[in-house]
Design a protein around this nucleic acid. Structure first.
Length: 694
DNA sequence: AGACTCACG
DNA sequence: ACGTACGTGAGTCTC
């Protein structure tokens, strides 16, 4: 007899479900019934919210997609608050704070407890540009406060000034611990109203991203269901459905229920997630890397980067002119019937190329619903007709204009004159960072053409200069170190050109005699290895035969046998535990490693291998960022981190301190690990981002 | 909302 | 016989 679904031995559950894969949901119910007296209600069976949420998580790694979907439906339907849950939640005291006396009392409580969960409400999702309209605070489970001050209402409320001056000493008190769910957002918001926070102590979003198996479902609402069996009001229900323009229009009672419970649940999650971190052996990872990184990223986002709009505009004139010219040429060549064609529509391009012009289709699109017109196809077709090549050029320039030239200036914060991207610490499965609004990790770097000119518009502030520092071939060094492959290690130790080294072994040529073409192949293969290369993929990438590709791969593994052995070990471990881990313990579940379908299984293998290499490199960069930031502060230098692009850091430094900061940067980044193979760090100076791009 | 395409590492 | 490279975010079109 089992009380909870996650107590049922997984093998038994799996076997029972596999026996009836077509209707796994029904099987699940029937299976659970075996362990309970019959005629029990759903809720008695444990089919309440948290159970469904846990069931969902439980089955995530069994990869029953249809089952997950049905559980989601059940969660939505049964989503209503059950009587027992309602009773529990009715006991919570959510209080609107509208007088100075009340606020003073709250501050006193915070000082007493020495810890507080904080959440902010704003008029929008942009932390630095939106208006802060209220702050919620919670110091003990069962009671939470919402302090509105920017609401549009006739209800009496405190002024922003009153709230800020009352909270400032509490927020500035380092001895009072501050908890947030996604701290960076709230820290930015609080900064906009002049509140500096000291004593930041826990981020429930970041912690949950490490421990929760369904790492993409770590919003406060999901966590509340999962850990407490308590649904929360959604922004949709509170604002959208009532047709309020934004949160400032929400009446206090509703606003308090929504906002105060955010702080309330955050506070309660802290000890739970601390326990999870410990149990899952992720305490060290969190304490040494992920938590301290929050503060570093916050500073980088605050700093922002200056964008020279005039320079971008000059580029726009040239690019727009060329786009128009290309458009005219394509339409002319396309024939009279095609004058209304939209060149940005893959569907219409498909029609033009493969029907009107009768060119041979090369491959299906990803979902197989149409013929692909991607750059690889256009490249191939350009030998047969002038139009594909022109479309290729058109696409390139249109992309440049729409995604970068037109879009980037709209992100400039009028208050600072800079672009402030947001880094997500929880978006990438391997543990890398991602950047959005705007994405500054995919600014063109190709030095041929106009692309690189976008980078030329990113500049340091007056008196400063950019210093770029990148880890050279970090993933290959990780591969060498983790695999312990003697040949690969020796190649790095000898300081050899690693791509030429690989080529020399592939082609049985002395290192000095490796041709440029051979080196290129060596380079492609080195990178491919990290993706878990296949003969098919390599043959396509190098435009060689399947057989040759297979031969190269065999040759590679013959030369670096340790690499192959290491890969097999990863797969064995993964099959044993269901996940892979980076060197610092960042975990990724790989449910499809148990898949019988060959294609899916092999994909799982590639994911497992790549995650260890990519994720370990990400760990190193994060540690480097934390250490470098600390050192620059410690030495009181006029230098700070500006951007992170996976293996590269962009640093802004006062011209007078460039040499000193360069030296420190190299030293700090290199000494993240003391491996057999040193980490290579390359630095460059420039007066804009283009100049420091190799 | 999903598909397609393409920018980056 | 099968048929794919690893990880993202964003703009555009289509339904």
């Amino acid at each position: 007899m089992y009380d909870r679904i996650d107590e049922v031995p997984k093998e038994r559950t799996r076997a029972a479900l596999l026996a009836n894969k077509d209707n796994a949901f029904l099987s699940l119910k029937l299976f659970l019934l075996q362990y309970h007296p019959s005629n029990l209600s759903k809720e008695q069976l444990g089919f309440h919210r948290a159970s469904w949420a846990k069931a969902r998580s439980f089955f995530a790694d069994l990869d029953f997609k249809s089952l997950i979907k049905e559980i989601d439906q059940e969660l939505a339907i049964a989503g209503g608050v059950t009587p027992s849950v309602a009773k529990k939640m009715a006991q919570y005291e959510f209080i609107t704070v509208t007088t100075p006396e009340q606020l003073a009392e709250v501050c006193r409580l915070i000082k007493d407890k020495k810890a507080v969960a904080i959440d902010t409400e704003t008029t929008g999702l942009d932390a630095m540009m939106s208006q802060c309209v209220g702050i919620s605070l919670c110091v003990e489970a069962g009671k939470a406060f919402y302090v509105p001050f920017g609401h549009i209402t006739i209800e009496p409320q405190l002024s922003e000034q009153e709230v800020v001056s009352a909270l400032a000493p509490v927020f500035a008190d380092e001895s009072i611990k501050k908890y947030f769910h996604n701290a960076k957002f709230d820290l930015h918001v609080l900064k906009t109203i002049g509140l500096d926070v000291k004593g930041f102590d826990f981020d429930t979003l970041v912690a949950a991203s490490l421990t929760v198996k369904e790492w993409q479902r770590i919003g406060l609402k999901y966590l509340s269901e999962y850990f407490f069996d308590e649904p929360m009001l959604t922004f949709e229900e509170v604002v959208k459905q009532n047709k309020y323009k934004n949160f400032s229009y929400v009446p206090f009672e509703l606003a308090t229920t929504y906002a105060a419970s955010d702080a309330h649940q955050t506070l309660r999650l802290v000890p739970l997630l601390e326990k999870e971190l410990k149990q899952e052996k992720m305490q060290e990872l969190y304490d040494a890397i992920e938590f301290p990184l929050v503060g570093v990223l916050f500073k980088m986002e605050q700093a922002g980067i200056y964008l020279d709009v005039n320079q971008l505009h000059a580029l726009n004139v040239r690019v727009t002119q060329e786009i128009k010219s290309l458009e005219a040429q394509i339409l002319m060549l396309a024939g009279e019937k095609q004058q209304l064609i939209n060149l940005n529509s893959p569907r219409q391009i498909e029609q033009l190329l493969f029907v009107e012009l009768g060119l041979p289709p090369q491959k299906k699109s990803a979902k197989g619903t149409s013929y692909s017109t991607d750059s690889e196809v256009l490249e191939a077709l350009s030998a047969l007709h002038p139009v594909p090549g022109l479309i290729l050029k058109y696409r390139e320039l249109f992309k440049l204009k729409s995604t970068y030239i037109d879009a980037l200036p709209t992100y400039i914060n009028p208050k600072t004159g800079c672009i402030h991207t947001t880094y997500s610490q929880t978006a990438v499965a391997t543990g890398r960072l991602s950047s959005f609004d705007p994405n500054l990790q995919n600014i063109p770097a190709d030095s041929s053409g106009y692309g690189i000119e976008i980078r030329a518009a990113f500049k340091p502030k007056p008196g400063h200069i950019f210093l770029s520092a990148d880890y050279s071939q970090i993933e290959l060094r990780v591969l060498a170190q983790l695999s312990g492959d003697v040949n690969l290690i020796n190649a790095f130790l000898a300081g050899h050109d690693i791509h030429a080294e690989t080529a020399s072994k592939l082609f049985d040529v002395p290192l000095a005699l490796v041709s440029h073409e051979q080196r290129q192949i060596g380079k492609r293969i080195n990178f491919s290895i990290l993706y878990g290369l296949t003969p098919y993929g390599l043959s396509k990438d190098l435009d060689i035969s399947f057989k040759d590709a297979k031969h190269y791969i065999e040759k590679y593994f013959a030369q670096y046998p340790g690499v192959q052995a290491w890969m097999e070990k990863i797969i064995i471990d993964c099959k044993h535990t269901g996940y892979v881990k980076t060197l610092w313990g960042h975990r990724r579940w790989v449910p499809t490693i148990y898949e019988k379908n060959r294609v899916m299984y092999e994909e799982a293998r590639r994911i497992a291998i790549n995650t260890v290499a990519q994720g370990t490199a990400a760990d190193i960069m994060k540690i480097g960022m934390i250490a470098l930031d600390k050192e620059l502060v410690k030495r009181g230098l006029d230098a700070y981190l500006v951007l992170q692009i996976h293996d590269e850091l962009l640093i802004s430094v006062h011209e007078s301190q460039k040499e000193q900061v360069e030296e420190i940067t190299k030293e700090i980044l290199q000494s993240v690990v003391s491996w057999q193979i040193p980490l290579g760090v390359t630095t460059r100076f420039g007066t804009d981002w283009k100049e420091v791009t190799k």
